[in-house]
Amino acid sequence: MDINLETIGTTLVAKLSGEIDHHTAPHIRDAIDREMNIRNIVNLVLDFDNVTFMDSSGIGVIAGRYKEIQARGGKVMIIRVKPQVDKILEISGLKTILDCSH
């Protein structure tokens, strides 16, 4: 799992690549949280173009960041979602509260 972070104004763009599971989730969570706190991040964009797998551990990570971003009055966007990840996002109900695109 690799994570690439870029800040544009108050928006953090996190490009994720590889597999998101219970083993890799803490790494993603810590990297995003650190950046969110160092810079004054309000919005979060999660780029899923290179995510090859995600299980419900990823749902926990997204939901956790959503709560924090919501508390800051911002928005979370998930972009370039692949079909295999889309299915689990759908089940989780996250798609009803997040801005999600393919």
Partner: peptide, 14 residues
């Protein structure tokens, strides 16, 4: 922290 509680639901659905 941050377990989604969706594990069995995912297994059932998939």
């Amino acid at each position: 922290g941050e377990r989604s509680g969706m594990g069995f639901t995912v297994m059932q659905t998939f």
